[in-house]
Design a protein around this nucleic acid. Structure first.
Lengths: 230, 230
DNA sequence: CGCGTCCTTGAACCGCGTCAAGCCAGGTGG
DNA sequence: CCACCTGGCTTGACGCGGTTCAAGGACGCG
């Protein structure tokens, strides 16, 4: 456990609390928030657990994965700096999903009671959180469409672009950051591992990507984008 | 065009505006809102159109359908009384989807400028709208999971249950309301028409449903639910 | 009665999920 | 330093499920 970081000290410039709450409220938040410093691969919460509040990612990344169904699961969402995780707090008794860190992460937790008070007294903040959820909703609508209208090849291409978008690329060799396994990619794409690999191999022989061990370099991003155009 | 209904007169008891805005603000809303009285099958907005505000359904039902992709589209959402449609207003320049009435509907429109002011001065209202979006987000996460983990048969079963949930049943013969075509069901399930029909036929011969022409009666709802259990 | 729309079924094809086997790299222990 | 092991990556083969194409039936409407 590391020393707690106050909102004033916090370097996450995308935090909605810091950016949109009245300053006097930041002290209140400091009082009530709990901070988690988690290594990669740690569960923040699991399906079935009772919901107590909401998690805000200050640093790092978290994947939200669905409950398992017939031995499979799906990555529902990747959350990064400033994102809210566990929004289910607003309306549900228990989490229907799991949240797992995929990088070393610093995460703030605010319980429901206090969060409600903050919402009531900081309309701009509430508005921005609402906007965040609207954007997430919009993304999900798009993913839902893609999941039934794209074929396997296209879904893998799309996922590669999403990974680049979320994790960025290594500044040296331009390979995708995130250190994801093929299995991770499969769970994001909603496919099985073998088909992901097959398509990666195809992409390589078509000059769209370069594989360096498990590292992937998107050498022809435009080409990949073309694949998923309507 | 029918006469405008004021918020005080409005009989929709699920309207978040009416339920959660301070009373003095309802007059303001009456001033600025526009009301649409649309017949079944009318477009409320279409993909690519410029976003001007948000629509609140007072009476009736609206389906939000994705942009067409390779000759196919998907029903992204069914919205009923009190639901917000066109939330994209909060963050997007143009609609990425279409909204079409599937019943005769009464719909209120509030433009972005005024909506923002209402949000800023009615924290409880903003909170409830946020909660609405959180629930929608949660539903979408679940649908996304199902769309890749369920097989065709299961998706059709799920869709039937959703239809019952949204539209209810005719009080006389217990057939599903909504007057949906097989194509509508297919677009909701994310399948093609033929497979929907094939599965409906299977369900009938298994005693799970009864087909009366295009009408459908869920004679064994529990049986249908069992199909989609994990 | 004829036309259009929607519903239904059959048959053929092929994409993809699954199973099985081998490979490669990194870590561990003798 | 090598032998072994483990976990992730890769490829091939096979069979099922689902998509697609084609054709016919039911129904409502002018």
């Amino acid at each position: 456990m590391t020393k707690t970081i106050s909102c004033q000290e916090c370097e996450n410039d995308r935090c909605l609390v810091k950016n949109y709450c009245d300053e006097k409220w930041l002290d209140k938040v400091d009082e009530v928030k709990e901070q988690l410093f988690e290594n990669e691969g740690q569960y923040i919460f699991s399906e079935g657990q009772r919901v107590r509040g909401v998690y805000i990612i200050q640093h790092g990344k978290v994947k939200v994965i669905s409950e398992e169904m017939r031995g499979k699961l799906r990555v529902v969402r990747i959350a990064g700096n400033g994102h809210f995780v566990g929004h289910h707090s607003l309306n549900y008794e228990a989490y229907p999903v799991n949240a797992v860190t995929i990088e070393n992460s610093t995460i703030c937790f605010i319980d429901n009671e206090n969060l409600y008070q903050i919402f009531m007294k900081n309309p701009k903040f509430t508005y921005e959180v609402m906007k965040f959820y609207v954007v997430e909703l919009q993304k999900m609508e798009s993913r839902l469409k893609n999941s039934t209208l794209l074929d396997c090849r296209e879904k893998v291409a799309e996922t590669l672009l999403v990974i680049k978008d979320v994790f960025g690329v290594n500044s040296l060799d331009k390979s995708l950051n995130g250190n994801l396994t093929r299995m991770d990619i499969a769970e994001m794409a909603g496919e099985n591992v073998e088909n992901v690999i097959r398509n990666l191999s195809n992409f390589e022989s078509e000059g769209l990507i370069v594989k360096k061990g498990k590292k992937l370099i998107l050498s022809d991003e435009e080409g990949l984008k073309k694949l998923i155009m309507s």
